[in-house]
């Protein structure tokens, strides 16, 4: 890559121009491009890893890889999808490393929120906490491909097309993983607990 420069960019500079400048070696333009997505990238890493420190490391590695690869970015995918794909791959790599060390793979505590009804007594609070815990454990037990599908589509709220593109599989294969993941979580948590949460 050509020597890195850092120049300030105006807030309303079009994305296409930012990409061009970043590809020419302007780190300032790259930062402006990536900054918009940094919190979401961090959140998705956190959902996979359940640990703030590791998620920060993944974000840092994601941004570095994106910077090193920006010249190869051809604009066929959106910047967001491209960055997301790198973040998901980095998260999976971090999880692989952790699984080799045989440590637990938790799900981010705040990933699962069980909404409180208007009048929430102590018993109901305990039930919600129990359901949240059951969901976290169930998601932790999914295989990585299934977990990735569930996190991207059902928690992150991406479209099937976006999520399939990010995971690098066709839509049919992605849906199959997603349906498998949901059925597994349903089986682990239990129909009665899930239906009760809907009131």
């Amino acid at each position: 890559m050509s020597r890195t420069i850092w120049s300030p960019v105006s807030a309303n500079m079009p994305e296409r121009e930012l990409i061009g400048r970043a590809q020419a070696g302007d780190l300032g333009a790259f930062e402006a491009l990536a900054e918009v997505h940094a919190h979401r990238l961090y959140t998705v890493a956190l959902r996979f890893l359940g640990d703030g420190g590791e998620a920060e490391d993944v974000l840092q590695e994601t941004l570095l890889r994106a910077w090193r690869g920006i010249r190869r970015f051809e604009g066929r995918a959106m910047v967001f999808t491209w960055l997301y794909r790198i973040a998901v791959n980095e998260s999976n790599r971090a999880l692989d490393r952790r699984q080799r060390r045989r440590t637990d793979v938790p799900v981010y505590e705040q990933a699962i929120e069980v909404p409180a009804p208007p009048r929430d007594g102590p018993a109901s609070q305990a039930e919600r906490q129990e359901l949240r815990e059951a969901l976290r454990v169930a998601i932790s037990q999914l295989s990585m491909p299934c977990r990735t599908a569930l996190v991207l589509r059902d928690i992150e709220g991406l479209s099937t097309r976006e999520a399939a593109e990010i995971t690098g599989v066709g839509e049919a294969a992605f849906k199959s993983r997603l349906h498998q993941a949901r059925l597994r979580v349903r089986a682990l948590v239990g129909d009665a607990a899930l239906v009760a949460s809907a009131g």
């Binding site: 940094a38 919190h39 979401r40 990238l41 961090y42 959140t43 956190l46 703030g52 998620a55 920060e56 974000l59 981010y108 705040q110 990933a111 699962i112 929120e113 069980v114 909404p115 359901l131 969901l135 569930l150 059902d154 928690i155 992150e156 709220g157 949901r182 979580v185 349903r186 948590v189 239990g190 129909d191 899930l194 239906v195 949460s197 809907a198």
Partner: peptide, 21 residues
């Protein structure tokens, strides 16, 4: 009904972005 409830629970968390340092 259980799957619909599951999706509501999971989708309900999607808006919460955590802040990177």
């Amino acid at each position: 009904r259980a799957l619909r409830a599951l999706l509501r629970l999971l989708n309900g968390s999607s808006g919460r972005a955590a802040a990177a340092s």
